[in-house]
Nucleic acid binder design. Sequence first.
RNA 1: GGGCGGCUAGCUCAGUUGGUUAGAGCGCUUCGUUUACACCGAAGAGGCCCGGGGUUCGAAUCCUCGGCCGCCCACCA
Length: 721
Amino acid sequence: MDTRYDYQNLEDKTYDKWEKSGYFNPDVCVKKGIAKKNAKKFSIVLPPPNVTGNLHVGHAAMLAIEDIMVRYARMRGLKTLWLPGTDHAAIATQSKVEGIIYKKEGKTRYDLGREEFLKRVEKFAKESHDTIVRQMKKMGSSVDWSREAYTLDEKRSLAVRTAFKKMYDEGLIYKGSRIVNWDPKMQTTVSDDELEYIEEKAPFYYLKFGPFTIGTARPETKFGDKYVVMHPDDPRYKKYKDGESMQIEWINGPITATVIKDKAVDMGFGTGVMTITPWHDATDFEIAERHGLDKEQIIDAYGKLLPAAGEFSGININKARPLIAEKFKAKGLLEKVDENYLHNVAVNQRGGGRIEPQIKEQWFVNVNKEFVLPKSKIKGIKSGEKTTLKKIMRAAVKNGQIRILPHRFEKIYFHWINDLRDWCISRQIWYGHRIPVWYRGGETYCGVNPPKGGGWEQDPDTLDTWFSSGLWTFSTLGWPKETKDFLAFHPTSVLETGYDILFFWVARMVLMSGYLLGEIPFEKVYLHGMVRDGQGRKMSKTLGNTIDPLEMSEKYGADAVRLSLIIGSAPGNDIKVSEDKIRGYRNFATKIWNASRFAVMNYAPTKTKPRFTTADRKRLREVTELKKKVSADIDRFDFNRAGDALYHYFWDVFADKVIESLKPRLSSENAGDRAAAQEVLLTMLKEQVKMLHPFMPFVTEEIWGMLPGVRKESLLMVEKW
RNA sequence: GGGCGGCUAGCUCAGUUGGUUAGAGCGCUUCGUUUACACCGAAGAGGCCCGGGGUUCGAAUCCUCGGCCGCCCACCA
């Protein structure tokens, strides 16, 4: 037996053994008596990684945390299911593949056409999927591969169409012309949550608009402006009446301007007066809606100016901006320019471009519309009662049926719901679930399956990727069929994910599950932090500070990587990792290995009755206490504490003190002494190896197989906790 | 503009409901080839727990004011 644990050669073999045993599957566990038939369930669905490439260290942290919960539950005899899958991640994947194709071949998706392009994306997605599966196995994730799902596979697509149709029929999904976030680069809409704001310096122009002065960073939108808006209580503009019109000189000649009074105007900002461009600004759109004003499109879908811009028609807005400013100046309408104005620019965070708001006809989910929830298991909402999607989302958490941990995230969740607007779910990209609506002449048909008869044409848009993710806890269990799995495992026990997708995903799962099932999707939400480097910086390729979990596993073993992602960070706080830290836990794995080796080497079966000392009994009691503590910590999602306690007890107490103190007795003349020392050593070791297993499954499994009194074919992963 | 988190040893962080000399990893110093382990062992140095005020027999922990740093949300044209 080597003095070092050979993780490079053993980890894959160990994973194979687990997989072949079938114990990742709860049905097998029940059949083999590992879990009783009537045992409580413990179910988790894996937050499906995007098929955009590789797993990163954030995924590794997620896998480590979930594997701890799952292995712990399984060892405690619960009917345990951890259901794996991957996410097609519509916009992210499409954007990635478009980038690759453009770089390699200089072609766009339009050059290839919808069909050919989708083939390429699918090929890419398949390869990513295979890589992800390999990587998950490498990390030791004890997921049930027999139930693997994909957000875009046949079963999940059926669930999506079923959900869409139900919402459509009840008027919760509607098509409407509203202002949306338009990405001219990717040629698609993006939801509010997918935006990212970047602060930018830009010239800010003060323009004369009749008797008023208005400020803008976007003179290129001003061609159609004919409403001038001010706060109704602004004393400076008391003499102007709401609806009053006047003739003024504007960029393309004289226009009739109308005064509008609206409280949306901030009296303290600039001159307290603004003109509005309802087609290209969300606030302006709302003002226009409130007052029934005209809306005119100035910029097209590609970011080029329309004929309304006169001689600037056809020019890209970025090029046109300084020219337009020039014209204002030439006409004497430019009062002054502030060159160092800071403003926020919205960008599509999924690799897209700068957002240009546009009015477009899109599909929306109405979050405020009342409907009847026929059968409700959500506390606070009675069966048959009228409710809204917002109310469902709020109720499920408010009444404690769903607990979000750490607790502070509940507040953030409520805050988000309060501000929530209708969810734009249609995308003009190609990779994703096609909207199940067909048109023929003036007819519209929505159905789970295409309509019969010829001449129908399907809506070209696809759905926001989060629409299908919202169904994930039950689409993976066979819904819309009421399968055995669905009945046995839903609602899931825990949803474990990063706090960055609380809104994107967690909230939407509550929405979908609440609406479609009248049920919560999970009992608890545990949110982990973001993984950062040793100095606490975000990991990024440009900084070159990324840590590849696979490379680290090759170098130090997956157990070490897992532990380094668990220990040292409080629940919900960001997780810091560095190679030094990983190396430290690799050393711990070696320590466990060697202590176990020592125990095995010193064990000789004997019939002699052991002569325990009070110190022996104290040690054995300590281990029992440790188990209580570790169990309590895991139950509270405090993996950091549990791991830390195990680490220190094993190293500081067991290895440094207990083993040292037992050494003389192990070679004692007295057989009873020897027997007691051996027994204490082995019992303490076994118990600790068991407790360490959820954290470091590979080494502990390997050690378990060498311990005296352990049947050769028995697996630690299903040993009784 | 609103909200949240952080500030503890050189670096990165733990420290559940306030309770004895404040902890870890890495780093540092000295010593050590005692047959589990040098990916080790033993010993050690190193801290006005961001600052002020308060509550308390007792505060890193609770309250309050302030200072930095980070994050999220928001329609400031």
